[in-house]
C-alpha cells in the first residue's frame, strides 16, 4: 500500500525524535576522542571513559557539592601518570594540602593565582597555546555573570584546546560555557556523614548528573562517596 506524503513525514519526524542526540550530520562517524579518566569507575562510565582531551568541559555545582574534590582527583590521576597540569585559580581557593592528600604530585602542578576572570581566561589561552599540559583546570569565582555573557571567549578557548590533547575543565557554581562545552557535569551534595563519638566528618555523598554531552544521551547520574582523609 502506498503511503501518503503526510504519513511519511509523520514517520520521519517520529524517527528523528527517537534518534535524538545520536543523529549526526554528515556521512563519516566521528572519531572517538581520547579521554581523561577520573579514576572513579562509576563516574567514568557516566562520562564514557572520562573527560575528553582537546575539548572544553564543565563541572558545576554549589558549595559542598564535591566539584573541588573531583577536580583534585583529576589532578592526582594526571600527575601520577607523569603528566603536567595547570590550575588557573581565579577564585583563589586552591588548597595545596588537599591536593597532596588527594594524591597529586605538586611538582607537576602549575598554580596560577589569577586576580580576576579576565586574567584567568587569558592565562588559560596562553597555557593551551604552550601545549604539553594534560589538564588545565579553570576555577572561576561564583556570581560573575560577565564571564558567561561573552560566548566568543569560550569559542576562542575551544579553538585553542582543539588538537592540543589538553583537557580544559571549567569549575564554577553555574554553567558558563553554554554550547561551547563538549561535556558538562552537575554535582550536588546529597548527604554529609558525621559519625562516631565524638562526631567527626567522615565524608560527603554527592550525586553527579550528566547535563550536557555533544554525542551521547544525557540526564544520567551516579553517586560518589568522598572520604575525609583527616577522619581516617
Amino acid at each position: 500500500m502506498l503511503r501518503s506524503p503526510s504519513d511519511t513525514a509523520r514517520r520521519l519526524d517520529a524517527l528523528l525524535r527517537d534518534l535524538g542526540p545520536r543523529l549526526r550530520r554528515g556521512g563519516r562517524p566521528a572519531e572517538p576522542l581520547p579521554r581523561f579518566p577520573t579514576g572513579i569507575s562509576d563516574l567514568d562510565r557516566l562520562l564514557d571513559g572520562g573527560f575528553p582531551r582537546g575539548r572544553l568541559s564543565e563541572i558545576t555545582g554549589p558549595l559542598s557539592s564535591g566539584r573541588t574534590s573531583l577536580a583534585l582527583c583529576l589532578l592526582a590521576q594526571a600527575t601520577r601518570a607523569g603528566e603536567v597540569v595547570a590550575v588557573i585559580d581565579a577564585a583563589d581557593a586552591f588548597d595545596p594540602a588537599s591536593a597532596e592528600a588527594a594524591g597529586a604530585l605538586l611538582d607537576r602542578v602549575l598554580w596560577a593565582r589569577a586576580p580576576g576572570w579576565r586574567e584567568a581566561l587569558r592565562s588559560a589561552e596562553r597555557l593551551l597555546e604552550a601545549r604539553g599540559f594534560a589538564l588545565v583546570l579553570l576555577d572561576l569565582p561564583p556570581a560573575d555573570p560577565r564571564a558567561s555573557a561573552v560566548p566568543a571567549v569560550w569559542l576562542r578557548l575551544v579553538r585553542a584546546a582543539a588538537g592540543t590533547g589538553t583537557a580544559l575543565i571549567v569549575l564554577s557554581a553555574q554553567r558558563m560555557a553554554g554550547s561551547s562545552a563538549e561535556l558538562a557535569v552537575e554535582l550536588r551534595a546529597t548527604r554529609a556523614h558525621f559519625t562516631g563519638t565524638p562526631a567527626l566528618l567522615q565524608g560527603l555523598e554527592i550525586e553527579a548528573a550528566l547535563v550536557r554531552h555533544s554525542s551521547a544521551p544525557i540526564q544520567r547520574s551516579t553517586r560518589v562517596h568522598l572520604h575525609h582523609s583527616a577522619a581516617a
Binding site: W111, P115, R131
Partner: peptide, 26 residues
C-alpha cells in the same frame, strides 16, 4: 610536557597577567 623554551615564555606571560609571586608549583 611543555617545551622548556615555550614554558619559560608562558610563565613570564602568566606572571605579567597574574602578578609577581603568584605563579609557581604549590
Amino acid at each position: 610536557g611543555p617545551h622548556p623554551a615555550v614554558l619559560g615564555r608562558t610563565l613570564a606571560e602568566l606572571e605579567s597577567l597574574c602578578g609577581s609571586g603568584r605563579i609557581g608549583a604549590p
